[in-house]
């Protein structure tokens, strides 16, 4: 029971990931597929960020007195600053940095994917995967040779 409480966030995030993955696999419509990919991606972000959370922590923005204590020379001031720093707990900033990069790269890949979908629609007149397969087969563009 204790283990479940400690890991409940991972369980929920994995469930969300699998819902996104299911949409990617199961839908024929390409826009719905991209939405599923987006849901999957956001769930991975949730996994990383929940990994960096520290109980009782603050956002990793250094408190003003803490920052000045560390920089304003003087040995006893530094010692006092170290004492204060021990009092304030910050969450881990590293996953936040990684996920900031991932969010921006994610929207770039999404934009490319949507542009491809628009082009496919222009050429085939449909964005349903099975209909595109059927057109390819019918026109002998792919698959068995005549």
């Amino acid at each position: 029971m204790n283990g479940l409480l400690e890991h409940f966030n991972y369980a929920v995030v994995i469930f969300l990931m699998m819902l996104g993955l299911y949409v990617v696999f199961a839908s024929n419509n390409m826009i719905k597929k991209l939405v599923g990919l987006s849901v999957f991606q956001t769930s991975v972000f949730l996994l990383y960020i929940s990994l960096g959370k520290v109980t009782g922590g603050q956002p990793p923005i250094i408190a003003e007195e803490d920052l000045h204590a560390a920089t304003d020379g003087g040995h006893d001031v530094v010692a006092e600053g170290a004492h204060q720093a021990a009092d304030i707990i910050y969450s881990n900033p590293l996953p936040h940095v990684l996920i900031l990069t991932a969010i921006v790269v994610g929207v770039a890949t999404l934009a490319i994917g949507l542009a491809l979908v628009v082009r496919i629609r222009e050429v085939y007149g449909t964005i349903e995967e099975d209909e595109i397969d059927a057109l390819d087969y019918e026109r002998n563009l792919e698959g068995a040779a005549k």
Binding site: T42, P60, S91, I99, L100, I103, V107
Partner: peptide
Amino acid sequence: SLDAVDVAFTEAAVG
């Protein structure tokens, strides 16, 4: 809620 305020506003703006 998970203390990732920078990620939160990037996700709200971009995502």
